[in-house]
Amino acid sequence: MTTGTDVARFQVGQGASASSRLRAAPDATGPSRLDAVGVSAWFGDNLVLDDVSLSMPAATVTALIGPSGCGKSTFLRILNRMHESVAGAKLAGEVLLNGADIYDAGHRLTDTRKQIGMVFQKPNPFPAMSIADNVTAGLALTGTKVSKGDREDLIEHCLTRAGLWSEVRDRLGTPGSALSGGQQQRLCIARALAVRPRVLLMDEPCSALDPTSTRRIEETIGELCSEVTVVIVTHNMQQAARVSQQAAFFLASQGEPGAIVEHGATKDIFEHPSDPRTADYVNGRFG
């Protein structure tokens, strides 16, 4: 288990594509690098995550894998300050967005969440809003004004990026809740993209969906990673192997807090894991 000073970081540059992407330094609006440094988390007095450090390079897809209850979703929610919305939740450590700590007093909570978007396990479009209004909901929530023409362009752009445009272009005025589960999830991705985040966190985005919808969303993730850094929690090993360039394996032993056992290029984690527990997990022997 990786604890204490045994802080593990990604060896960026293990994959040629990852390193070349990283060298193209992210600009102010492009995908950003996200670093978690010594992150621990508590619910009440219960330590659920112990001293986790992980670098998520810009414009790559990082998969967080591990059995249930190992703290990977908690870790994900710490990355955009959603963790603290739960009563009794506490945390330690730093999360650096392009080097700046998002928990710093100078950082506004709402700005942080705008820059680091999130897609949830269960599709959660706003049911009272039309498809178009759902896409632009983030703009209304953050008080961002756009002209009518820009708004239409943005709706088309985001729905296209989320792979939903062709299916809904003729019924943008209908309620978002009338879509199928997979379409709703892609609408949620479009909604998250509309505020132009630098990082997109995805918490098991396909676990409630059928295989066809899952494949569409995986394609979407593949297309997105050039413009946004993606961090995805998944229980699906094949999915992690398909969509991510890097992976981190979380594990919590009985009665112990969760921590990262191993991380690195996804290929290495799946084909040559260095820790026997990782090998057991990715080969389906437990979890």
Partner: peptide, 22 residues
């Protein structure tokens, strides 16, 4: 619904925004 509240928060919404949207 908590899911919708969290969606509004994760988009950068303030508490007032969550109240008005959800």
């Amino acid at each position: 619904p908590l899911g919708e509240r969290e969606a509004a928060m994760a988009l950068g919404g303030t508490r007032l925004g969550v109240a008005r949207t959800v």
